[in-house]
């Protein structure tokens, strides 16, 4: 359930002389995942073109850009969730723990154990709240106290107080915002290295949204988070780094404050100030 076995293998691989992309010298944080010259297409139609940027450990990175620019496509490809879409081809490297996650030696199931995902629409299992959380750890051989893990995960997702008395009731009885927090708790129960979130607040009211934003802030010390969002304020508020995509091209990547206040590119400025898109 951790990246450790991946790490050990990576040493072997490096001595075998495989190339590994070196993050830019000026990058101030430890890089946990390096997106290196990635292009993705759907049956030949390019959706993401030659995108490279690093994901910093224990930081929040947001991906912004107009609808259809390839944000979800890029995010899904990080933990190989687009393996389930027909006709997808991915070129380039996602270097995680010294490995390309698309290397033939890597088991995609193992990648997804370490890189969790929260989807745009809440998708709880049609089972009890408890089972929603416990199933992932259970199939992955978790041996500790499940009750404790469930409570811890629900607390981390700021849902515990609302559901503590109904853990064994169906998760479908929760409100949309609660369901989304349950999905976050479910992902957290796996203790992933990286948490990918695709517009997790798009179906939520402002109160639930701010719950989740607070939550992301708290989670930063333990997890690395990559979040796709259409909400500029949200990106500016919560993220440390921001990547701006447009029509599949990475227009700009940088520290969030800089990107929002002093962007290098004119298009970025137009987009973040709302004069575009």
């Amino acid at each position: 359930m951790s990246a450790i076995n991946l790490l050990e293998e990576s040493i072997v691989e490096k001595t075998a002389g495989e190339s590994e992309s070196i993050p830019s010298q000026t990058f101030p944080d430890e890089v946990i995942l390096d997106i290196d010259n990635v292009s993705i297409s759907y049956s030949g139609n390019p959706a993401v073109k030659h995108v490279s940027f690093p994901i910093a450990k224990n930081r929040i990175t947001s991906i912004i850009g107009p609808s259809g620019c390839g944000k979800s496509t890029l995010l899904r490809s990080i933990n190989r969730m687009n393996d389930f879409i027909d006709g997808v081809t991915v070129d380039g490297n996602f270097i995680y723990a010294g490995h390309n996650v698309y290397s033939s030696r890597i088991d995609p199931v193992e990648v997804r154990r370490n890189i969790g995902m929260v989807f745009q629409k809440p998708n709880p299992f049609p089972k009890t709240i408890y089972k929603n959380i416990s199933w992932g750890p259970q199939i992955n051989g978790f041996t500790g106290s499940m009750d404790e893990l469930v409570e811890k995960s629900l607390r981390q997702a700021a849902l515990w107080d609302e559901v503590r008395d109904r853990l064994h009731e169906s998760a479908l009885g929760l409100s949309g915002g609660q369901q989304q927090r349950l999905c976050i708790a479910r992902a957290l129960a796996m203790e992933p290295d990286i948490l990918l979130m695709d517009e997790p607040c798009s179906a939520l009211d402002p109160i639930s949204t701010s719950h989740i934003e607070d939550l992301l802030f708290d989670l930063k010390s333990r997890y690395t988070i990559v979040i796709v969002t259409h909400n500029m304020q949200q990106a500016a508020r919560i993220s440390d780094y921001t990547a701006f995509l447009e029509m599949g091209d990475l227009i700009e990547f940088g520290i969030t404050d800089q990107l929002f206040t002093r962007p290098n590119q004119k298009r970025t400025e137009e987009y973040v100030t709302g004069r575009f898109g």
């Binding site: 370490n114 989807f119 992932g136």
Partner: peptide
């Protein structure tokens, strides 16, 4: 979406 939820948990 249910399948995806499960796959995403490894």
């Amino acid at each position: 979406s249910i399948r995806h939820a499960a796959y995403a948990l490894g």
